[in-house]
């Protein structure tokens, strides 16, 4: 490993993006890499757009990922994938949960949720892996496991040994949720695009 890889995590406050970034960061640290993770706290957590950056490599300087720099964009929600598409490298990959959560302007009727937004993202030429992570999380045992399902799908696309991910999840999640989360990881790892 030499070149810095950048994984950008986007979603809606409350979806568990912070835990996802911690699992990613720890897994990368296990590989002996230099790691930086930048988190969002405070005002922006309250149901707003949230962004977390994870970067690893021999030496990482900036903790943030700028436009055109993300190797992987891990999107917990479809609209957020489109919002942060400009941050993806032109040859990067988007892993996106197809779940749609209406933002408040859509709820109040002052804006519309764009139709087939994932199709529009694909039309721009981005490599997109889209699947229903919420359904897989339910299948694993809890809707709250969406983050681990998505980690599974991202893990498959990063050059880090699968066992490292599994060990990191074991260290990070409470024992009573272990089996459910490991199942969620496997489901994500093997997720087929829809």
């Amino acid at each position: 490993m030499s070149q810095v890889k950048s994984v950008m995590i986007v979603g809606v406050g409350g979806q568990g993006t912070l835990l996802a970034s911690r699992v990613l960061g720890s897994a990368m640290l296990h590989c002996g890499a230099d790691v930086k993770v930048s988190e969002v706290h405070g005002m922006s957590q309250r149901g707003g757009s949230v962004v977390t950056y994870v970067r690893y490599g021999d030496k990482v300087y900036s903790p943030v990922i700028d436009k055109g720099e993300a190797d992987v964009l891990m999107a917990f929600e479809a609209l957020e994938a489109a919002r942060f598409l400009p941050w993806l490298k032109t040859d990067g990959t988007i892993v996106v949960n197809t779940q749609q959560i209406d933002p408040m302007p859509v709820v109040t009727g002052s804006a519309a949720y764009p139709e087939n937004i994932i199709g529009s993202v694909k039309a721009e030429g981005a490599k997109v892996v889209a699947f229903d992570a919420l359904k897989l999380a339910e299948q694993a045992g809890s809707v709250r496991a969406v983050n681990i399902v998505l980690i599974g799908a991202v893990a498959k696309r990063l050059s880090i040994d699968k066992q490292v991910w599994i060990d990191t999840i074991k260290e990070t999640v409470p024992a009573k949720f272990m089996d459910m989360n490991l199942k969620a990881f496997e489901l994500g790892y093997n997720a087929q695009e829809i």
Partner: peptide, 16 residues
């Protein structure tokens, strides 16, 4: 940088 972006307007998602 060269960037990709969709043509649609993306509704804002303010904190609530």
């Amino acid at each position: 940088p060269a960037v990709l972006s969709v043509k649609e307007d993306i509704p804002v998602r303010p904190p609530v």
